[in-house]
Design a protein around this nucleic acid. Structure first.
Lengths: 193, 193
DNA sequence: ACTACTTTTAGTATCAGGTAATAATTTGGT
DNA sequence: ACCAAATTATTACCTGATACTAAAAGTAGT
């Protein structure tokens, strides 16, 4: 039970190592040897055991992830995945609530993400060069939780068409439960060249 | 003017090289030698001249950038920077519209970003464990353009306090021009342990 | 054609931050 | 004291570079 000074038992070290790397993914094995006061081989065996890749791999994975995110944001300018779209008529989009969309305490989705999905779908269904939200009347009917898939359905009001403004009603569901509804007034410019 | 087959003049190569790396930041110098049919030293001299760092540096910069973004999103759970906050009374936040917040065609801000700033400020001024948006009535008064700073001011309606719901009015300005106004109804749970 | 100059290529030494594999040593427990 | 697990040491090798020196090739100008 002597144990060299400043050392942790293996299981504890494994936990703290995983933690440390999560906190600071840019740390090298060598810096870790100093933190834990063990040899570099031990650190490497530990990483192996925990399935944690080397520094360069970690960094690369992060970069690839963020690169993909940026790309996909540029590709579809809509929040959520549009699965159906009939211009000037209706549209459907799906959006799943991940960790980054919820309050960390309660795991309940922030309202503006649900709004964003509905708002960008309302814009998407309007077949115009420039379409902007003029106003909106919205209700959050029940809270959406982490992991839930929101299905937003937008309908363009017939009687509102061919004008400077269009009315779009959006209903968002989780399963068959209504969680959000909103009426959006969309400005449309007749800039169709 | 003979020039070996499949070669570009230097200036053109420099432009295309910069372009290629921007399109695919994960490309190595060696892969580039094949694309441009020149030696690896030439590629490296070119990168030098263009001030483009090596693959590993590029990847690291991307990872650091995304890491900082994630961190800052976790640190302040509010969209925009809160510059003043009097709980249950009022609050002010500032949010600048960058490239990622505007439509690429028109450079006009997407409505949901302006909403997000207002919504998260409305939540922040409510001094409660759990506060959620129940409904909102909003108007976009004029469009916000790339680079403009939005100053959102939130006021909690006095008569709405001490209830299950609170009413928060938010006015967003660019300079002294009103660009957005909204009335938010916020659910508050009395879960004050 | 000869010179001056730029561009390109080659080659060597060195680096960080590892992997992989094998062997030796230390430690803890009984 | 003995055994197995844990740790450390050692060596060879890898990728994707930098830094530097030197030589070769191409490009004009006169």
């Amino acid at each position: 039970m002597v144990m060299r000074i400043g050392r942790l038992p293996k299981q504890k070290r494994l936990l703290e190592l995983a933690n440390e790397i999560e906190q600071n993914p840019f740390i090298t094995d060598e810096q870790l040897t100093k933190k834990f006061n063990v040899s570099i081989q031990t650190i490497r065996l530990d990483r192996m055991e925990l399935g944690i890749p080397e520094l360069r791999e970690r960094i690369k994975l992060m970069a690839e992830k963020s690169y993909d995110q940026v790309r996909s944001l540029q590709i579809d300018e809509v929040i959520g995945e549009v699965v159906d779209l009939q211009l000037d008529k209706s549209g459907i989009s799906i959006f799943e609530m991940n960790e980054e969309h919820v309050f960390s305490k309660t795991k309940i989705a922030r309202g503006h993400h649900i709004f964003s999905q509905a708002n960008s779908l309302a814009i998407a269904v309007i077949d115009d060069e420039v379409a902007l939200t003029a106003s909106a009347d919205i209700r959050f009917i029940r809270s959406v939780k982490l992991g839930e898939k929101c299905i937003a359905k937008a309908y363009v009001r017939k009687d509102s068409l061919n004008h400077e403004k269009a009315n779009v009603d959006v209903f968002t569901y989780v399963g068959n439960e209504l969680v959000f509804e909103g009426n959006f007034v969309i400005f449309r410019s007749e800039l169709k060249i």
